[in-house]
Amino acid sequence: MNTFLFVHGAFQGSWCWDQIKPSLQQKGHTVIAIDLPGSGEDATPPQDVSLESYVNKVVTTIEKIDEPVILVGHSMSGMVISQVAENIPDKIKKLVYVCAFVPENGQAISDIASGGPKATFDEKNQTITLMEEFIAEDMLNESSEEDLQLFKKKIRPQPVQPFEDQVSLTNERFGRVPSVYIETTNDRSIPVDLQRQMYATKPFERIYTLDADHFPFYSRKKELVDCLLDIAVTER
């Protein structure tokens, strides 16, 4: 059995994985989901949040686990799991990008994504807050009304600094960690064409395709779990 460590995307928290965790646990896997600094229930002031603080939180969590983990990152956290793999490659069994950013060395999210989410900027707190119509139309466009309302209830303003911070990656470390990508073909937040441009830059072991929006842990729960279970049984 494996240990899955889930890292959420922007505006979210560990809660976003709640609906798929039980299915993995029922198969005997250990499942850990964390709140990044300034997200979920973490009380770090947004002005103190950076990509480095995200990475440090994940590294600290992994170092407490006895075995290498399957590290899963959604959306923004493709940047986070990439840097974590660079820092501690021997502690990662596999990287799993769920419609996530795949950076090249020296890139930030702001270098990859054009425009970004439709959001309002709070200069004092250095955060952005999603606009209501964008959530339903461009993010959870294939998810249920129940999941949409849950998402709206739980999201928080997103610290902006992690979008500007660059990763530092090498082929010798990050490049040797086995990776898979789960693309989402009905994604309006990170369109599938952009996903494919990004994952073409790295030799992924396998590409999984889901006819899902940007939140497959809502819109395609079973299919996402099936992908993760398949990843877990595939030899490194």
Rank of each mutant, 00 (worst) to 15 (best):
V69D: 08
D90G: 13
G40T: 07
F204P: 00
I231L: 07
D187V: 01
Q197T: 12
K64E: 15
N141K: 08
I65W: 05
F11M: 10
V69L: 03
G28Q: 12
E146R: 10
N171K: 15
Y97D: 01
S23K: 14
L130W: 03
E132L: 06
D230W: 10
G28F: 12
G13Q: 09
A136L: 10
K222F: 11
T3Q: 06
Q158D: 11
V98C: 00
D211Y: 11
P162V: 11
Q83G: 00
G40E: 13
F151A: 09
K152I: 08
A100Q: 08
I20P: 00
S179M: 15
S219N: 13
C227P: 03
T185G: 03
F11L: 12
R236N: 15
A100W: 09
Y97E: 05
S114A: 11
P46R: 10
Q26L: 12
T44V: 13
A108S: 15
A200S: 14
Q197N: 10
K222Q: 15
I207F: 05
I88D: 11
I88G: 11
T3G: 10
M198H: 03
R206P: 01
D122C: 11
D213I: 05
T129V: 06
S179D: 07
M198D: 08
T170Y: 04
Y181C: 02
I182N: 00
Y181G: 03
K154P: 08
Q25C: 09
I112A: 01
F101Q: 06
W17H: 03
E183D: 10
M131P: 00
F6D: 05
S179H: 05
L148A: 08
D48W: 05
C227Y: 06
Q83D: 01
L140D: 09
S189Q: 13
S23N: 11
V192C: 12
P22K: 11
C99K: 09
P103K: 09
G28M: 07
P68A: 03
A232D: 12
R176I: 14
E183R: 02
D35L: 13
H8F: 01
E123Q: 14
N125S: 13
F11A: 06
L140K: 04
Q161D: 10
T61W: 00
T234Y: 07
Q19I: 06
V96P: 02
I34Y: 04
T209W: 08
Q83V: 06
L24F: 09
W17F: 14
